[in-house]
Nucleic acid binder design. Structure first.
Length: 499
RNA sequence: GGCGUUAUGGUGUAACUGGUUAACACGUCGCCCUCUCAAGGCGAAGAGUCCGGGUUCGAGCCCCGGUAACGCUACCA
């Protein structure tokens, strides 16, 4: 297998998908790529992988840019800064993927598949029921040129699939690649499915777009999360089908929840927006992420002599990639908080004041809150009476304020869980939230009053507050969701203690 | 179910090419300081390295076999 030349100028990339809030995992992989490039005088590229139009969120891309910049992970090429290998947004490169899919069609390493989603679904269900691994049966792989032409003439839509060997040009029965952290990994081709490369909507899947772009953008090192290991053989086969050199692969450990599952918003705040809005400092987040998986000398102490405390620059100078350990590290908020406190205390009094003024008492934030308060108070100093929850993190309501008169605590908690799902799925504006909550109330037979009052108690810690929905909008989605989650978690803990 | 990866105190990491009572950081607990809470100082508890074999004078490090967790198993990334 021909691999990338060791002399090639280093080029790495992160490729987030704009499907929601910028994720802490993106920051982690971004940090690693950034360090790798800076250590080697290479280029760090940001590419937006927006090929899934069903999950596309229009505000997401801008949030990704903002939060990565906020963390100080600046990229050399990207959709917003340009560069010689653009465009850097995959939705603007569809023509390129189409041309490349054609190449594969012509050289026999890919084929058109006319199976419908329903057919495939049925087959998968049957296979699963028979305890067989779900696999594309290769129906369309055996189509004759005449049948294909007939299907096309009939206007049938199709996808393009990668033909996993053995086939005409390639009789190999397995693919082996090197993972720089784990050594060589082999997959038997019998275990690799004929991956869809081009969807019927004309957009490529991750696999095609990623390989084509990485090649065209001359990426030398693919540093990505561990979840991609299983699809790497497909990628290697794609490079081979095009006759291209394979990059180096570095699969990084997956950040975990406390229960060791892959980090998720169900169990952890994962949105970078949350961390920013909650008053975490970029150097603390960077430092903490740098502790995940190792790589820094374990006894490293930064400028003020605190062990395990270091800056981005110190990471560039001292981080050793081959020292990364591959067991998935638990993302432990307690340690992040400790670090954040460390950085907060080291701020000059003036900088600390400035930080408070910007984050906690920012004009924008205060203006919105004061708008909610103007006709609710009679002296200015009453302002604080109803707005404490906007500025405090610790707002657990006592049980007699959150359990409605005719409900049990258990029912109430269950309903709160539903509320969380409802507001999570809703667009963050008054009408959408209102509709979503009211709909839930109707389904579960909760009155609007009970419904809103419960959420108010959870979010504000009180039964008295400015209008709920308006308050939530000002308070922000990331923090609101986290507050409800933490409430539920705290109640669960309490319930367990009673047992 | 199949395939792949991983496995050191509660959490994150150490332990040179196998070599004294497995180290550090966070967290927890206690004490000091103190009007309170932090911060700071001092101290403690907590793992015998997933389990079972093997090699060796000696294994967390090597070999074999299990187990568990996690990931993938989509016209999502």
């Amino acid at each position: 297998m021909n691999s990338i030349s060791t002399e090639a100028p280093i080029r790495v990339r992160i490729a987030p998908s704009p499907t929601g809030d910028p994720h802490v995992g993106t920051a982690y992989i971004g940090l690693l790529n950034y360090i790798y490039a800076r250590q080697r005088g290479g280029q760090f590229i940001l590419r937006i992988e927006d090929t899934d139009r069903t999950r596309f969120v229009s505000t997401s891309e801008e949030m990704i840019f903002d939060s990565l910049r906020w963390l100080g992970l600046n990229w050399d090429e990207g959709p917003d800064v340009g560069g010689p290998f653009g465009p850097y947004r995959q939705s603007e490169r569809t023509e390129i993927y189409r041309e490349h899919a054609d190449i594969l069609l012509k050289n026999g390493t890919a084929y058109r598949c006319f199976c419908t989603a329903e057919e495939l679904d049925d087959i998968r269900k049957q296979q699963l029921a028979a305890k067989l691994p779900p696999r594309y049966p290769g129906t369309c792989r055996r189509l004759t040129p005449e049948q294909i032409d007939a299907n096309i003439a009939a206007g049938k839509s199709y996808t393009i699939r990668l033909a996993i060997p053995p086939h005409g040009n390639d009789l190999s029965s397995s693919t082996t690649f090197r993972d720089e952290l784990r050594g060589s990994i082999t997959f038997e081709h019998g275990n690799v499915d004929d991956q869809v490369l081009m969807k019927s909507d004309g957009y490529p899947t991750y696999h095609l777009a990623n390989v084509v772009d990485d090649h065209l953008m001359q990426i030398t090192d693919v540093i990505r999360a561990e979840e991609w290991i299983s699809s790497t053989p497909k990628h290697v086969l794609l490079y081979k089908a095009f006759g291209w050199q394979v990059p180096r692969f570095w699969h990084m450990p997956l950040l975990r929840n406390i229960d060791k599952s892959k980090i998720s918003k169900r169990k952890n705040p994962v949105s970078l927006i949350y961390y920013r809005d909650s008053g975490y400092l970029p150097p603390a987040i960077i430092n903490f992420l740098g502790l995940m998986g190792g790589g820094m000398p374990s006894d490293f102490a930064g400028g003020d002599g605190v062990i395990e405390k270091f800056t981005l620059d110190e990471m560039v100078a001292n981080f050793v990639f081959t020292d990364i350990r591959v067991g998935g590290p638990v993302f432990d908020l307690a340690k992040l908080k400790w670090l954040n406190g460390e950085y907060l205390r080291k701020l000059s009094p003036e900088d600390f004041f400035l930080a408070i003024r910007e984050r906690v008492f920012g004009d924008d934030y205060l203006r919105q809150i004061s708008a909610l308060m103007q006709n609710r108070i009679e002296t200015l100093t009453q302002f604080g009476d109803m707005t404490g929850f906007f500025f405090s993190d610790n707002v657990l309501p006592p049980q007699d304020t959150w359990v409605p008169k005719k409900r049990t605590p258990e029912d109430t908690l269950a309903f709160a869980q539903d509320q969380l799902a409802a507001i999570e799925a809703a667009d963050w504006n008054h009408d959408a939230l209102d509709a979503s909550l009211r709909k839930l109330g109707e389904e579960k037979q909760w009155s609007v009053k009970e419904n809103f009052m419960l959420l108010r108690a959870i979010l504000t810690g009180s039964t008295m507050s400015p209008p709920l929905l308006e308050s939530m909008i000002v308070f922000g989605k990331a923090r609101s969701l986290d507050r409800v989650r933490r409430f539920l978690e705290a109640q669960k803990k309490l319930a367990n203690q009673k047992k």
